[in-house]
């Protein structure tokens, strides 16, 4: 676990951020992520460009669906966390759970699922639900969905696989657990047909929260992404969330609250701003929304990061190999 002295840093990946050139799009995105890895950032958030999956420049169309892109990026990186957005409307929970469990094994414990509590206005119409869901239904459905995903991820005990050729025992049936979930929106028997995650479970990052979602996030999320706002508001929101985390019986550090920040300022100003926000304890770190120009990451790495490191606000290197270990979360798998 970390002591809270240093900030966590994520960077959002979207199309305009990578070099435009003759290289294929994947190579350009891979090069971006490799540079973020060289800078030892905790994780890259892969936006999913489905119509109305979110909004703004972060969702300008990419050539790839986020989970497939994550799998490919996992093979050309070795330490950085890779978190993909995937919609609860576009996937059945069993299928989404499998995808991320598999991504976590492919990446050796560096994968995360970015789910949003906000219903994308146009999306449901492409998934045979022209009328979408009411806000209340969507909230209850998402909550149930997350419970299924996390339950399925825990269906195999860490020592369930025996690989005992001579004895003819591939796994221990007592260490494989059915989910037997029957709820308002879904029923899922389980178990998952993908092995347990190398980092215990993939990381769950939640965004799009409104106040009624705070308890759901406090109970289930590993990372909460919040939009920036006036200092006193973000501080109050942070304290409120951490109180709720404790009320759920979790350690306050078991959930990392990151603030989305657009970095359009010069380097010293940017470092000051992050410093100020972090030291006032209004977040555990930041999700960087860089300007849509290829040099933006280099500028951040070359100018802002050294300043943050000089002030002792960001670690020099990775502590472990899993995303949980970068984030200082329990169950990192390699502490």
């Amino acid at each position: 676990m970390d002591n809270g002295a240093t900030m966590h840093l994520a960077v959002s990946l979207f199309s305009g951020i990578a070099d435009r050139g003759v290289e294929p799009e994947f190579s350009r995105l891979a090069s971006f992520v490799q540079r973020a890895e060289a800078a030892k950032l905790d994780m890259v958030l892969l936006a999913d460009s489905a119509p109305a999956a979110g909004g703004g420049a972060v969702n300008s169309p990419m050539a790839f669906e986020a989970t497939t892109l994550l799998a490919a990026l996992a093979t050309v990186t070795s330490r950085i966390g890779l978190v993909a957005a995937a919609s609860t409307v576009a996937h059945q929970p069993y299928n989404l759970t499998r995808r991320f469990a598999s991504l976590d094994i492919i990446s050796h414990g560096r994968a995360g699922w970015h789910a949003t509590m906000a219903q994308a206005p146009r999306e449901a119409a492409n998934f045979s639900r022209p009328d979408g869901f009411s806000s209340d239904d969507f909230r209850r459905r998402t909550e149930e969905y997350i419970g299924i995903v996390q339950g399925l991820w825990r269906g195999w005990d860490a020592d369930a696989l025996l690989f005992d050729k001579a004895g003819g025992r591939f796994h221990d049936p007592d260490k494989m657990h059915l989910l037997d979930h029957q709820g308002e929106f879904f029923s899922v028997r389980g178990p998952l047909n993908v092995a347990r995650s190398p980092q215990d479970t993939p990381v769950l990052a939640l965004s799009g929260l409104s106040e009624p979602d705070f308890n759901i996030a406090a109970r289930t999320a590993d990372v909460i992404l919040l939009d920036d706002g006036p200092a006193e508001d973000t501080k109050a929101r942070f304290d409120d969330l951490k109180r709720r985390v404790v009320a759920c019986g979790r350690e306050p550090d078991a959930v990392k609250v990151l603030t989305n920040v657009s970095l359009e300022d010069g380097p010293t100003l940017a470092a000051d701003r992050l410093d100020q926000r972090f030291r006032s304890k209004s977040c555990d770190g930041f999700n960087l929304l860089l300007p849509a120009r290829p040099s933006a990451l280099d500028d951040f790495m070359g100018l802002v990061l050294p300043e943050l490191r000089r002030r002792g606000l960001f670690r020099e290197g990775y502590r472990g190999t899993t995303l949980r270990s970068h984030l200082g979360l329990a169950g990192g798998g390699d502490q």
Binding site: L70, R99, S102, F170, M176, N193, V194
Partner: peptide, 22 residues
């Protein structure tokens, strides 16, 4: 099931996406 190796494995779309760039 516990005497076969087929109860766990990669989900194929993530697997092939990884293989695509290798």
């Amino acid at each position: 099931a516990s005497q076969t190796s087929r109860s766990i494995g990669f989900e194929p779309i993530s697997l092939l996406s990884a293989l695509a760039v290798q």
